[in-house]
């Protein structure tokens, strides 16, 4: 009896030692969790999640202070990837957070008064212009966050949905598998 206990304890000690050694020896040097979450977030910096940008939201998620379904631009696909990363169940986007089609902001050049308010609001410096000069948006750098819309005193900014063209067109998922009989 004693010997059995001793043998078991011995095995436990040896295996525990091996595991401990292996966990140090083969430790994977990883990006911190925040970076990984931030890499999944779409970087629109739109603040729809209630945090002032993607990084703060990523920090809040990593601390468990925010839910993973608060990012409409990331869509359900983004939620799924966050869930996979964090090992939790994916859930639908929060109420009223339906993802919109991708869009860019466009300034109506005739209405713009050159007030620079939108320039200050733009999180990615995608608006060119100076005081009393007409502003214009660099479409390739616009994330479609809509943060420039509210500050504009003359409502000259509108969102234009990006249409699929020959270059960005995608092949659809093939739909000819055997369907289940209804």
């Amino acid at each position: 009896m004693i010997s059995a206990i001793l043998v078991m304890a011995g095995i436990g000690l040896v295996l525990g030692g091996v595991l401990g050694w292996a966990s140090i020896r083969y430790r994977v040097q990883d990006d911190p969790l925040v970076e990984k979450i931030d890499a999944i977030l779409p970087q629109t910096q739109c603040g729809q999640c209630g945090f002032p940008g993607c990084k703060p939201y990523a920090e809040a998620i990593s601390k468990g202070e925010a839910d993973i379904n608060l990012c409409p631009p990331g869509g359900n696909d983004g939620v799924k990837r966050l869930a996979e990363l964090l090992g939790v169940e994916p859930k639908p986007l929060g109420a009223g957070m339906e993802p919109k089609p991708k869009a860019v902001a466009v300034i109506d050049e005739n209405t713009c008064i050159g007030c620079t308010l939108c320039i200050q609001a733009c999180p990615v410096d995608a608006i060119l212009g100076a005081a009393k000069q007409m502003h214009s948006i660099i479409a390739e750098q616009c994330t479609g966050c809509e943060l420039c819309l509210p500050p504009c005193p003359v409502d000259c900014i509108s969102m234009q949905v990006i249409r699929e063209d020959v270059a960005t067109w995608k092949w659809r998922y093939p739909m000819h598998m055997m369907k289940r009989a209804a």
């Binding site: 779409p42 970087q43 910096q45 940008g53 999180p123 410096d125 750098q141 994330t143």
Partner: peptide
């Protein structure tokens, strides 16, 4: 494409 755009947006946001 999305990832490139997101990386660019992140860099620009961090710079701002």
């Amino acid at each position: 494409r999305d990832k490139r755009e997101a990386d660019q947006a992140r860099r620009r946001h961090e710079f701002k």
